[in-house]
Design a protein around this nucleic acid. Structure first.
Lengths: 143, 143
DNA sequence: AGATAAAAGGATATATATATCTTTTTATAT
DNA sequence: ATATAAAAAGATATATATATCCTTTTATCT
């Protein structure tokens, strides 16, 4: 339901949230998240453009989170790379429908709304703090 | 959130549900639903393979619904052409995670579940019967 | 049986998403 | 100032989804 690119973006952001000590390079993040490095570079670019992350150029540069994990909904991350878009008007371009969606498209739209709402109300902090055996991106397992 | 192909499939099925008098040809359905005819032909093939529709070959043939609209969840239509798949195991192939998803992938999976549930509990009949000004696929508007 | 209408199937084209590689620009530290 | 590390940008490749066209098979009617 979310694109591969959005999944990559989420991984990168979770990774940065787990390592807020200093900027991290694309290469580092790629290795941790198992995302193809040069593709990740584009993903991080998009995240920077949307101010989800902050990029620091030059020596000892890299990427850092632009917001505290508590203030960073997953939806913002997804929308930076692959926006979840509502249906605004009839996909069949039926003139009489226009912006008044028929039941079919209302239902499809409703599902999009629900999805947005789920990701809007889930922050990166929630992902980090949820009690679990499997730590995101890490082989380690809690006891 | 659902693919173009899934949208086409939904349109075709709603169209057949609105016209259950006799089999309808790919060309007819294409014209009503505004789906590219030759692409629709493949979509209908997939729907037939999954027994969502029934195909009748030869003269006066075409496609008919294989089930009453009341017994046809939208999910069945979508899954015939573009299955909504849950995440079964860690996308990073982390050995220690395996089938025990981390919070990030649990959340993503949860959103997939919700989506499935919405389309599972919505039937084609519900789409047809919902009171509305905009009738699916039709320019006509109710008063 | 023959003509015809329709689905089924195969081959190909186009567009979009995903991925890789190389060069350029920018900032930092010495 | 210079060297270096890093992001940014550009160009290209690959894969997948979407779309089109053409041929073959199947069923129906006269």
């Amino acid at each position: 339901m979310i694109s591969q690119t959005a999944e990559y973006a989420l991984r990168a952001v979770v990774c940065l949230a787990q390592n807020q000590d200093k900027p991290h390079t694309t290469a580092e993040i790629a290795s941790w998240t198992k995302v193809p490095e040069h593709y990740l570079s584009k993903v991080l670019l998009a995240l920077a453009k949307h101010e989800v992350v902050f990029s620091k150029k030059g020596l000892h540069g890299g990427y850092v989170l632009a917001h505290a994990p508590e203030n960073l909904p997953l939806l913002n991350v997804i929308n930076a790379v692959d926006p979840i878009k509502n249906i605004k008007s009839c996909p069949l371009k039926l003139k009489t429908h226009g912006t008044n969606l028929c039941p079919l498209h209302k239902k499809v739209n409703e599902s999009i709304d629900v999805m947005q709402e789920m990701f809007r109300t889930s922050t990166v902090a929630m992902i980090l703090n949820e009690p679990t055996k499997s730590i995101p991106l890490c082989e380690a397992i809690k006891n």
